[in-house]
Structure formats: C-alpha cells, structure tokens
Computed example of a mutant assay.
Amino acid sequence: MRIVCLHTADSNIALFEAAARAAEFEVLELTHVVRADLLAAAEQAGGLTDAIAAQTREVLLALKDNADAVLLNCSTLGPSIDDALAAQAAPVPVLRADAALAQRAVEGGGKVVVLCTVSTTLIPTTNLFAQAAARTAAEVGVQLVSGAWKRFKADDTAGYLSLIAAAADAAYENGADVVVFAQTSMAGAALLVTGAARPLTPPAIALAAAVQAARLAV
C-alpha cells in the first residue's frame, strides 16, 4: 500500500517515517512531497486564500496517481480539501492529517486543549475541532504557543519543542483532559511533557486513518 504525503516542512518526513515504523503497518510505502512554498504563501497572505487552496488541490490531484491514499499534512492548507476535490480524486482517498486527529481528540468528551504554533492555522484548526466536537460532549479550546514558530523558523528545534511542552504542561495543570498538538512539527515535544498524559500528535493517527481509508476504497 502506498500513501503519498504532502508536507510543508522537510523535518516532518522523519516524524511520519518513525510513526510508520512504530505502528508496524504491513507492506506500507510512504512517499513524501514537500511544498514549503504553499505554507509560505499562506503566511504572507495572512491565511489560506482561494488561490492557494486551488493550487494545493492541483498538487493533491497530481499526487493521486499510483497512490492508494493521499495525506495532506498541513493544518493551514487543510481546508483545501473539499467535496469537489474528493469527487475528482475518487476512488483514491485524499485526507487531512488533522481531521483524524480532531475525531480522536473529542471522542471521549471532556476538556480538550489544542495547541498550535503558526497563526495561519488558528482559524482552520478552530473550525475543524468545533465541527468534530459538535457531535460529542467535548469542550474545545485552541491556543497559540506564543513565540514558538519564530524559533522553528530560526532552526531552534530545542527551543521550539521546549515552549510547546511548557504550554502542554500548563494546559494539563489548568484542567485539560486531552492536549492536542495540531501540527506534526510539534510532535517531538510530547516526549518533554511531564504530566501523566501524553498529548495527541498527528503522524500515527493520520497514517492509521489513511490506511483505513485506502482499504475501504478497494
């Protein structure tokens, strides 16, 4: 089975590969495509525009050839996946990595705190988790980890992950039942969180959803 992943940061490739190895998926081949320019354009525009969404859809449709499923691994670009794209991509599933994450986060109800590091993802992430929570008893709050994205862009990985872990610990201390890292780049911070619970991160959850969708599409 081949899952093609569209990323907007090179560093996310290793995180997805590690998640695939840990999950021990049988006969799973991951192919990675990185389009950092799409996220950069959205940041420059102050968010996802219709033009950037259309460009993202074109890329996703091109990736469906020779793929069993296509996974969009960027929460800012996530809304680019719509019903029209799904119809064009059929029978190849095209999924948002954060959609499966949202479903998992709210399924048990309780207080869910979703952490983000890039401002352009606040609106799409808030909308996505609100839609997921509408069918559950979960109370969702989305928060930006101030200063973190600046460290990421400066290649200060240790500083980036440290700020995220501190925000997660604070969320647990303030009563969060579930803490979610909305972006794959944040995943490494889960190992630095001192609370008893481990934050939910996209790679393993998204890959499991893509594999399931691919199997159902056969």
Rank of each mutant, 00 (worst) to 15 (best):
L48Q: 04
L61G: 03
A130Y: 00
V33M: 04
A90T: 09
R104M: 11
A197H: 09
V112P: 11
V180W: 12
D155S: 14
G78V: 10
T194F: 00
V218Q: 08
Y160H: 13
I81R: 08
V106A: 05
Q212V: 08
A209G: 06
L163C: 07
A69R: 11
A20P: 06
A36H: 13
P203R: 07
G141I: 02
N73M: 15
L60H: 02
A20W: 01
V112T: 14
A197S: 15
R215N: 13
A209Y: 07
A133I: 03
A36L: 06
L71V: 04
A69Y: 10
L192E: 12
L163A: 12
L200K: 04
Q131K: 11
L6D: 02
R104N: 07
V218K: 04
A182E: 03
C74G: 04
L191K: 09
V193Y: 10
D169K: 05
E173R: 13
G147L: 13
L38C: 05
L39P: 02
A102R: 04
R215E: 14
A36F: 04
G47H: 10
L38I: 05
A36S: 15
T120A: 03
F16C: 06
D169T: 11
K64M: 09
A100D: 07
Q88N: 07
T117N: 12
W149T: 01
A19T: 04
H7F: 03
P79S: 12
V142A: 03
R198T: 15
T157V: 14
A166T: 14
P79Q: 10
G195I: 04
D98S: 10
I164K: 01
V218P: 03
V145P: 02
L28V: 11
V218N: 04
